[in-house]
Write a protein that binds this DNA or RNA. Structure first.
Length: 401
RNA sequence: GCGUCGGUGGCAGAGCGGUCAAUUGCAAUAGACUGUAAAUCUAUCGCCUUCGGGCUACGGAGGUUCGAAUCCUCCCCGGCGCA
């Protein structure tokens, strides 16, 4: 992997560049589509490509459970397995430490909107992930069977999955964890980062085209932890960096800025799991090159669609007889007239959702992914054109009016 | 005509003397979703409300009872059986 910066802005940390991978280039800033189980839910790889996506991210834990990493390895890696020829990324399974651990059975998100920080009572009962210093023991959410992930096994699996960019095994914490716990988890993530790096070297040292390994910065919402983590992870020989963990919604961009001021400028930074429209501007402005997020596809499947005037819920009664496209001047397949001279209408998409037709998910996902992927492309162009701030202000004013 | 079973909130369908404005599912109306445990989840879902409560309701009309969706009588409607 190779990273070059084409243009940097002087008034912010924003930059535009290119990440070159063995499977093609990613023009950054870029949004990586999420295809957790080697499938972007409800979309074919052709649809993913034609909406403009350049890179797909899959998940180590999920592919380890099914179909198993040996199968994916035999297939030639998850990209080849699913029929995606472009660049690929795998997450390490670190997010499942959170989602199957502290967050399991609860409504908490990695983004906190309240001030209820540090008041979470830790309960072990019911969790599917148990953390110790050496690794994490998971109970499969599919059949309850027990599995063990360590930094070493995550590297081994990710090597088999064959993505161009892989991540160090980390612990994603909840935003409700105390400062003491955030520190403990961060320090553990640092030790795991060293082990991930060492194992990756051992596994791929002999290979010519080794996978790029990104280290992950943690530290929750605390400035001293985030800066300490950025320094320590920067000091390791990673090819790029992930910014992970939990955030408080209102100070998320600030946290990203603290970290990116410390991370080496010449390596790409991936803001893990973030990607709602407003967040993309905040991320880019604070030095982020890569994003991935399930929000566009998950929300699409649940009827929430992005428009430049904000989100709409296509299931609302007011759309049942609305024969205009989801968004008038949108260039996506769903909104354009590429398929027989007419666009799909809000009324039709609403009907598909109400009738529980699978095609609803496809049309909605195409629209949302196009919206997000293209928004990041426009952000990139605005950096190159030198009008990032104007674009940001115009967009956000209209979107969050 | 006789017998029999049944008529419950938009639909299906529980309840069978009080704790019933009435279980549950669906539909409906909103909301949520940020490295996918998710084509999921949450709330509301008779009318009014100063959110304490008030009012009208289980085919219709009477009745029994302190109290009825629940028991009795008659009527209306539907299924089935016999004529």
């Amino acid at each position: 992997m190779e990273f070059t910066i084409e243009k940097k802005l002087s008034k912010s940390l924003a930059r535009a560049g290119v990440v070159k991978t063995p499977h093609g280039a990613i023009k950054t800033p870029a949004f990586s589509v999420v295809g957790t189980k080697a499938s972007v839910k409800s979309l074919s790889p052709e649809q993913v490509a034609s909406l403009g996506a350049e890179v797909v991210l899959a998940n180590t834990y999920h592919l380890y459970l099914e179909p198993g990493y040996e199968i994916v390895k035999k297939a030639g890696g998850f990209g080849k397995f699913m029929g995606w020829n472009g660049p690929t990324i795998t997450d390490s399974g670190g997010f499942q430490v959170f989602s199957l651990g502290a967050a399991f059975g609860k409504t908490i998100s990695k983004i906190s909107k309240e001030e209820s920080i540090g008041d979470e009572v830790e309960e072990e009962a019911g969790k599917l992930a148990k953390i110790d210093d050496d690794g994490v023991t998971f109970k499969s959410h599919i059949d309850g069977s027990t599995h063990r992930f360590t930094p070493e096994s995550s590297m081994e699996i990710q090597e088999a999955l064959g993505a161009d960019i892989i991540f160090a095994f980390d612990e994603c914490t909840t935003p409700h964890a105390s400062y003491e716990y955030q520190r403990e988890a961060m320090e553990r993530t640092h030790r795991w980062a060293r082990r991930s790096l060492a194992e990756h070297e051992r596994l791929s040292g002999k290979r010519l085209s080794k996978q790029a390994l990104f280290g992950i910065v943690q530290g929750g919402r605390y400035r001293d932890l985030r800066e300490e983590s950025a320094k320590i992870i920067s000091g390791m020989d990673f090819d790029g960096f992930g910014i992970g963990g939990s955030f408080n919604k209102e100070d998320m961009y600030g946290v990203v800025g603290w970290v990116n001021k410390i991370l080496p400028e010449d390596k790409p930074r991936h803001l893990l799991g973030i990607g709602e429209p407003g967040d993309l501007f905040g991320g880019v402005e604070n030095g982020v090159d890569l994003f991935d997020c399930v929000a566009p596809t998950r929300q699409a499947r649940n009827g929430t669609l992005y428009t430049k005037n904000g989100r709409i819920n296509i299931l609302n009664a007011r759309f049942t007889a609305d024969f205009s496209p989801i968004e008038n001047d949108c260039g996506c397949y769903t909104c354009s007239s590429r398929h027989g001279g007419v666009s799909y209408t809000r009324a039709y998409v609403a009907h598909l959702f109400r009738a529980k037709e699978m095609f609803a998910a496809t049309l909605a996902s195409i629209h949302n992914l196009y919206f997000i992927v293209n928004l990041v492309k426009k952000i990139r162009q605005s950096i190159l054109d030198g009008n990032f701030l104007e674009f940001k202000n115009t967009f956000l004013k209209q979107y969050y009016h």
